[in-house]
Design a protein around this nucleic acid. Sequence first.
DNA 1: ATAACTATACCGTCCAGACGGTACAGTTTA
DNA 2: TAAACTGTACCGTCTGGACGGTATAGTTAT
Lengths: 181, 181
Amino acid sequence: MGSMPRKPLARDAVLDAFETLLIDVGERAATLDAVAKKAGVSKGGLLYHFPNKEALIEVLLDRLDGLAKEDADAMAAAAEGAAAYFIRSSVWADTPLDRAIVAATRLAEVAHQETRRRFAAIQQRWLDEIAADVGPGLAKAVLYMGDGLYFNAMLSVGPAPQGGAAADVEELLAALERLRR
Amino acid sequence: MGSMPRKPLARDAVLDAFETLLIDVGERAATLDAVAKKAGVSKGGLLYHFPNKEALIEVLLDRLDGLAKEDADAMAAAAEGAAAYFIRSSVWADTPLDRAIVAATRLAEVAHQETRRRFAAIQQRWLDEIAADVGPGLAKAVLYMGDGLYFNAMLSVGPAPQGGAAADVEELLAALERLRR
DNA sequence: ATAACTATACCGTCCAGACGGTACAGTTTA
DNA sequence: TAAACTGTACCGTCTGGACGGTATAGTTAT
């Protein structure tokens, strides 16, 4: 039979902890020690799975790419249209994709180039889907509305409680309908 | 009698350097040593004017408040209307206000609470002016469009050159006209 | 004379990463 | 079948460097 080593439980715990800390306290405070402590893992154990902090980031970005691709596919197939789907999904809802995006944003803010590149690619894909729905002339307007929602969520998410951003979506959807006519 | 000490040249140089470093390399890399070096000032000279990093931040936020207030007043008085003025001014144009906003955003991303509070206040003022122009139902849509522009600028500004975001503004203004009808 | 610096040395703390060791599941060999 | 061995999954400690901040003695401009 093939060898069956123990399952690497710490690995996922570390990744989730890293993501959570990025979201809650920012990149600066998401130190290896803090991540290890949050994950309930020793620092040595953390470094066994991720040789350095950059490796931690890379895996997080890969996870983001996967989730973003899934989401873009769902957007393209959405019955309500890509634009409405996009607006709706731009509210902070603590989904895996939301978390991955905000976490990655914290890295981009710190001028992490690779993160910025990935972001640009994801944004482009979103823009393409929206343009296919509402036409190229309005796509940017819709994209930026959603981005604005994210932007505001980013600045309030964290230790502070999250307000009722869900109400904003209705306004944005109404604006979208108006643009569509 | 009239002893006239020399003018504090270093003070402004330090503030500008701090702002530039925040924009270009993020909060993490905007160390006191880096700021002093960029400003062409000794570290001792920097600390002569700003006893600690927090003081540096506070003065930057005060400068932001002043510029934001000026801008909001101009927005309220704009002939084209507050909403169009806002959209237009949301493009990254390297103005003092743009720089102050992006610099402050870098701090907010690092979960600096006071910075977030100031931002929320500025956003509220903007929202009020826009609502006075296009009505409360559409204000959030317009605000978020502008924020989206800023958001994207934040993620691309820095060492990388700035693309033609100015073209986007025309799209957004067209969308705004459409909403207004 | 005095504010506005320069230059440099230094301190405590924090952090990324290296390193050596431990526990244990599974595999081989006698 | 059991001792010997192997590889994975960790733990705990240490080190070297960076960073924020202090201190202090000397220099320049007004």
